[in-house]
Design a protein around this nucleic acid. Structure first.
Lengths: 342, 342
DNA sequence: CTGTTAGCGCATTCAG
DNA sequence: CTGAATGCGCTAACAG
C-alpha cells in the first residue's frame, strides 16, 4: 500500500494526445472552446493513461481550492453533528469539500485552527463556537476569504442563527401558561455568550414580564450534559418548595431532569413539567417524549454554507445576517399540548 | 469581508530581511541549520509583514499536504460522530487536518468521494463504510497513499474494528443465561455486510450452539433507527408466543423496542429483557438504562488514525489489522447484572 | 550556516 | 479553436 506510481501529469496527456497542455487543461475544466474531435481524443488518452488532475497544483495556479474550513466546538455533540451534516450536504452540492476542526470552545484553539485553515488557503470559513471576541474579529478581518458564523452571532459578520432569547422566553411562557408559579431553570454557564447567557435571559424576562418574578433559588447551572441536568434537578427537588416546572436549556439536561423527577417517585408532567431546547433525536427517544424548542440545526448549517458559497462566488447577497425560525415542539413532558406555536 | 490583501510571500520576507528564500523557508520549517541571529531577524520581519505560509504551494513543492481524507456514512449518526472525534483528535495531535465526506453508504458516492479526495492529494485515507467491494479494492490499490479502514473490514487492507460476530454472540448469550427460551432479534439489513450480517450471524450461532435453536419467526429487520426498532418490537409482541428477550443490533432500535414493550403495558426487564449494541450516549440516557455491547467508538477512530500516521511516516508497523476489545455493559434492561464481562 | 537553482502540476494570458 | 510562455509560492538538492 502506498506505492509511488510515477505520477502522470497534464503534460504527459498532452504529449500522448498530440496537443498542448492548454488544450488538455481546457477539456479537463470543461471549457467549451475545444473542437469535439480533439476533446474526444484528449478524453480518451486521459482515460487510457489513468490521468488524475492534481488539485493542489490547480489550487496554486488558480488560487482556488474548492475547500472550506469548518470550526466547530465538538463533532460528537448531537447538535453540532446535525449542523455539520447540513453544512456538508450543501458544500457537496456546490462541489466544495470541508476541512473539519474541533475547537472544544477554547478560544486559543479556535484562533489557531482558523490560522491553520487560512494557511491551507480555504476559499471560505464557517465558524461555530463560543463568543466572538475582539481577537476573533481581528483574525476574521485579516482573512482574505469570507467568513460566516453559524449558530453564533456577531454584528460585524454575516451569520445564521436563531433568536435564542425569544425562544427561551417562549419555552418559559409555555410553563407559565400551564399555570405553574414556581418554574425552575437548569441553565448553562452564564459565561457562555452563545447559549448559556441568552437562554437564561429569556427565562428571566418571561418570568419578570408575567409578574411571577425571577427567583435566584430556582436557578441551577449545568454543563449541558445529561448528568448535570439530573444533578441540578435533584437539588431543585430538595428545595423546601420545589418547582412544579423546569426549563432546561438543552435536551440532554432536560432528560436528566426528567429522570431525576422519576427517581424521586414523582411523575412528568403531572408533578413537574419539563421543557428542553434543541430537539435533538434524544428528545423523541425518551418517555415521556420531551417537549422542546425545535432548533433547525440542519438548516442553520445548510443556510450558512449556502451563504458562504454566495460570498465565494461573488453573488449578490440580499441578507447576510439570517435569523431562522424555530418551533416549540410540545410532546409529553409538559401538560400543554398542540399550541403555543412559534 | 473577502478583501484581497496583496499576498505577501516568502520572497518578500527574504528581501525585507536581507536573506534568501531558502533561509526563510528554513526558519518557517524549524530547520535547525540557521544561526540564531538570522532566525530572529527573519522571525521578526515575518511578524512585521504578517506573512502567512501558503500550504498549497508547500504541498505542491513537497508533495505532502498534511491532510487526510475521511469517508464516513453519516456524521449525524451518534456512532460515527464519536468515531470521527477520535479520528480528528489524533489527526490534530499529529498536525494533520481531515477532509470529511458523508457517503450515506452509497457505493458510487463512496467511490466518487475517494477519487475527489485523491485528487486533492490527501496524504492518506480513512474509510468507513459499507462493504468493501472489488471496485473499492481497485481504487484503493490505485491510490498512491495509504488507506486504512475503520469499523470496517477487508482482508486486503489495514483496518481497525471489533469482532462483530463474537460480540453479537456474547450479547445473545447474556439473554440465554437469563433463562430466556424465546429470544427475538431486531436486526439490520442482511445486505449490510458490516453490521447487519455479522450481528445476525452471531445471534444465530449463539442460539444454535445453546440448543435453543434459531427460529425465523423471532427475527425482524429494521433500518437501525428508533422507529424501526419500535415497530419491530410491536410485531414481535403480537406473536402468539412472544419473545421474553430481544437482542437489537444497535442502541437506537433497542430503545425503540423498550418503548414498544412499555407501550404494551409490559415491563423491561421483568417481562422482556432487551440488549442493544454500540453504547451510544442514548443507552445511558433512557430508563431503564440499556444493557448493551460497548463498542469503543472513539478508540476505533483514534487507533485507525494513528495507524494511518504510521503509514504516512513510514514507521514500522507491527500489526496492521487491529481487532479492538469490546465490553458487555449490563445496565437495567436485562435481568443479569455485573457479569458476562468480555 | 546560507544562497542559487530548479522544478512541483496546472491555469492563464496572449498570440495566432 | 489551439499552442507557447509564464508564474502561482514554496521546497529541495546542491554548492559554497
Amino acid at each position: 500500500m502506498g506505492k509511488k506510481k510515477e505520477t502522470i501529469t497534464i503534460y504527459d496527456v498532452a504529449r500522448e494526445a498530440g496537443v498542448s497542455m492548454a488544450t488538455v487543461s481546457r477539456v479537463v475544466n470543461g471549457n467549451p472552446n475545444v473542437k469535439p474531435v480533439t476533446r474526444k481524443k484528449v478524453l480518451e488518452t486521459i482515460r487510457r493513461l489513468g490521468y488524475r488532475p492534481n488539485a493542489v497544483a490547480r489550487g496554486l495556479a488558480s488560487k482556488k481550492t474548492t475547500t472550506v474550513g469548518v470550526v466547530i466546538p465538538d463533532i460528537s455533540s448531537a447538535f453540532y453533528a446535525e449542523l455539520t451534516r447540513g453544512i456538508e450536504d450543501i458544500a457537496n452540492m456546490y462541489h466544495y469539500n470541508i476541512i473539519l476542526c474541533n475547537s472544544d470552545l477554547k478560544k486559543n484553539k479556535e484562533l489557531q485552527l482558523i490560522d491553520a485553515l487560512l494557511e491551507k488557503q480555504v476559499d471560505g470559513l464557517l465558524f461555530m463556537g463560543g463568543e466572538v471576541t475582539e481577537e476573533h474579529r481581528e483574525v476574521f478581518a485579516g482573512a482574505s476569504v469570507p467568513v460566516v458564523l453559524a449558530a453564533t452571532h456577531d454584528e460585524e459578520r454575516p451569520y445564521v442563527t436563531i433568536d435564542q432569547v425569544k425562544a427561551a422566553k417562549d419555552a418559559t411562557s409555555i410553563l407559565i401558561k400551564e399555570g405553574n408559579q414556581r418554574i425552575g431553570l437548569i441553565g448553562g454557564p452564564l459565561t457562555d455568550a452563545i447559549m448559556g447567557q441568552p437562554r437564561y435571559q429569556g427565562y428571566r424576562e418571561a418570568l419578570e414580564e408575567s409578574g411571577i418574578g425571577f427567583e435566584e433559588e430556582l436557578v441551577r447551572l449545568g454543563n449541558y450534559r445529561y448528568q448535570s441536568g439530573l444533578d441540578a434537578m435533584q437539588e431543585l427537588l430538595a428545595l423546601p418548595e420545589p418547582p412544579t416546572a423546569v426549563f432546561a436549556v438543552n435536551d440532554e439536561m432536560a432528560v436528566g431532569a426528567i429522570h431525576a423527577v422519576q427517581d424521586a417517585g414523582k411523575k412528568v408532567p403531572e408533578d413537574v413539567s419539563v421543557i428542553g431546547f434543541d430537539n435533538i433525536p434524544l428528545a423523541s427517544q425518551v418517555r415521556p417524549r420531551l417537549s422542546t424548542v425545535a432548533v433547525p440545526m440542519y438548516d442553520i448549517g445548510a443556510v450558512a454554507m449556502r451563504l458562504l458559497t454566495k460570498y465565494m462566488n461573488d453573488e449578490t447577497i440580499e441578507d447576510n445576517q439570517v435569523v431562522l425560525e424555530y418551533r416549540i415542539e410540545l410532546a409529553d413532558s409538559t401538560r400543554l399540548k398542540n399550541e403555543g406555536e412559534e
